[in-house]
Design a protein around this nucleic acid. Structure first.
Length: 609
DNA sequence: GTGGTCAGC
DNA sequence: CGCTGACCACT
């Protein structure tokens, strides 16, 4: 790839002139270019920046490619020149031109960082990372290196390996940077030409253009907006947790007769099972298990395990939430900006990281206090909208089971109804214990339950769990037949798919090892359900974002937590957007059962829930 | 880097 | 029994 050129007025290399001609075609109204009738229809680009966080870092340069075989790089802020800062406003024209399609790998990053330069990319988005994900969501990574290796047999060099210890791309001299940056833009172009025809062949084109591509823009907005946090509240909480932990720690040491690291499962195992002589329940690969279920069992025989459970809970809340969240405040916005990853899960769900805002505590006194630290903007409220039993409703639709459809059509308490069937009592006579078991069984169905798994979850012997499962399926033949048919189809095709055609390959479905095969069979049951729920909320997000935008609302979607959406809304917009949000969520897909959404609001996330 | 544990859906 | 990510200890 020696034809990559550097936009550099001072450079007299052969490709210099041609490179500037390339630049000219990106710029409406600029001087004529040799091929005067040439219209730029699409542009692959790759933004190089000082780091990997688009909300804190600055652009260093931009690589461009408009056709395979040639690409160029515009250095903007390298520490050592030459830089072409004047090129940025020129590039803005092409990037903001909606009739120029944008091609890139992980466009969310590039588009977010360009926004800080006042550039708002428009037009169709061909993201090769998203395409790779739809083609194989099982793939462990979808970096440009991973995808190029698989589809182009191209081994991409990382600039850091070549440049040595450089930390920021700004420290790489422009001429050297050109080799790597321009290659990335061209790789995106080459991958687009391979992956998008594949999407079409595999029937995934609609999923891309109707769901993942528009969702990408929604996620960009959500990440940019972020969410407000009351750091003072978290700091106070942290100090209280510190005090509590100190007390528990002292009691644990007194009970143990020695000090040790409570956070070390190995040291804890030694204290519990060797020093105190308690009975080990389960084992792990490396030694005694000290998991929650084991400690709960041991708590019946000794005080210490209960204290450890309490210690673990509070320590987790302190380190993972109370202490960690304030550190991730963005200095410019004063808010927390998570990263929503669109290409991680095997089922089509999103994931959230740095920080993960999809696992903020919701239960318990201390957990609720952490949610109270997620607050609305001044004069705003947080609105939480979550789907009620979305996965069971999807199972009802996909299986066509009469009992489930009937239950949801009547809007009955599904767990109580299952309990009434399992225990053979009228629904009014279902007690809390029966309902608890039924709830676990209902979850089990969605997870592709096995007697062993259900027995573990309920803490009962496997034969008893088997009896529940058999009873459930005898009363829900539609579900049983659906599961059988799904596994059959998976054996035949090697994959399963959601209502919208999102597929997940199941390479182990015909494995000769029973454990491995049964694991794949559980995935065959669960993935279409979990994945359809993911499709459904994605559609709702796209439609809600569109209506908020077109309606000129100031309400912003801020978080998605799998079956819940969280909004930050001015008080006066609350009633109006609540009705709209409910409508869009309940009608994102027409199923054979109604969808139900529960909505709450308040000054903080705990109140809204 | 891996495994154990636990926060969420 | 499904899907994640973060923190900790330990090698």
């Amino acid at each position: 790839m020696e034809q990559y050129s550097l936009f550099n007025e001072n450079k007299k290399e052969e490709s210099g002139q041609e490179a500037r001609d390339d630049l000219a075609v990106f710029l409406p109204g600029s001087r004529p270019v040799p091929a005067a009738d040439y219209t730029l229809r699409e542009l692959a680009f790759d933004v190089e920046a000082t780091g990997v966080d688009p909300l804190s870092d600055r652009v260093v340069g931009i690589a461009l490619c408009r056709e395979k075989g040639r690409a160029c790089y515009v250095p903007l802020r390298h520490l050592s020149g030459p830089n072409l800062p004047d090129a940025l406003p020129l590039l803005k024209g092409a990037l903001e031109n909606a009739s120029v399609a944008k091609i890139g790998h992980n466009l969310k990053y590039d588009i977010l960082i360009l926004r800080k330069e006042g550039i708002r990319a428009q037009g169709a988005l061909y993201d090769t990372m998203l395409a790779s994900y739809l083609l194989n969501p099982n793939k462990p990574g979808h970096s440009l290196g991973d995808v190029s290796l698989e589809y182009l047999s191209h081994r991409k060099r990382a600039y850091t390996e070549v440049a040595g210890k450089e930390k920021s791309f700004a420290e790489v001299p422009p001429e050297e940077a050109t080799r790597y940056a321009a290659e990335d833009a061209e790789l995106a172009m080459e991958l687009r030409d391979i992956l998008f025809p594949l999407l079409r062949e595999r029937g995934l084109e609609k999923l891309y253009f109707d769901i993942e591509m528009p969702l990408l823009s929604v996620l960009i907005d959500m990440e940019e907006v972020g969410i407000r946090i009351d750091t003072g509240k978290l700091e106070k909480l942290s100090r209280e947790l510190e005090r509590e932990l100190g007390g528990i720690e002292a009691r644990i040491y007194a009970l143990a007769g020695e000090t040790f690291n409570i956070n070390s499962p190995r040291q804890l195992g030694k204290v519990l099972f060797e020093n105190l002589g308690l009975k080990p329940g389960k084992k792990t690969k490396t030694g005694y298990s000290t998991g929650m279920d084991v400690l709960e069992e041991l708590a019946k025989a000794h005080e210490l395990p209960g204290e450890v459970l309490n210690y673990r809970t509070l320590h987790k809340l302190k380190t993972t939430y109370a202490d960690a969240l304030p550190k991730l405040l963005n200095r410019k916005t004063g808010r927390i900006h998570t990263s929503f990853n669109q290409t991680v899960t095997a089922t089509g769900r999103l994931s959230s990281s740095e920080p993960n805002l999809q696992n903020i505590p919701v239960r318990g006194e201390w957990g609720i206090r952490i949610r109270e630290a997620f607050i609305a903007d001044e004069g705003h409220v947080l609105i939480s909208a979550d789907y009620s039993q979305i996965e069971l409703r999807i199972l009802a639709h996909m299986s066509g089971d009469r009992g489930l459809i009937d239950a949801f059509s009547r809007n009955s308490d599904i767990h109580a109804r299952t309990a009434s069937e399992l225990f053979g009592v009228p629904i009014e006579e279902v007690d809390a214990g029966m309902r608890r078991i039924a709830k676990v069984v209902n979850f089990g169905v969605v997870y592709g339950m096995s007697p062993y798994g259900l027995s573990e979850a309920l803490g009962i012997p496997p034969p008893e769990a088997s009896a529940y499962i058999e009873r459930y399926f005898s009363q829900h033949p539609g579900v049983r037949d659906y599961i059988d048919a799904t596994i059959q189809a998976a054996r035949r095709t090697g994959c399963v798919s959601t209502l919208l055609g999102r597929t997940r390959p199941l390479p182990e479905i015909g494995n000769s090892n029973a454990n491995v095969r049964q694991q794949a069979e559980r995935l065959a049951v669960n993935s279409p359900i979990q994945g359809t729920a993911a499709d459904l909320i994605k559609i709702a997000m796209i439609r809600i974002a569109k209506r908020l935008r077109e309606g000129g609302f100031s309400t912003r979607m801020v978080l998605q937590i799998h079956d819940e959406l969280l909004f930050d809304a001015p008080g006066h917009e609350r009633e109006g957007v609540t009705a709209m949000i409910r409508h869009e969520m309940e009608h994102s897909l027409a199923l054979s059962v109604p969808l139900k959404v529960e909505i709450g609001w308040g000054g903080n996330w705990a109140e809204a829930h």
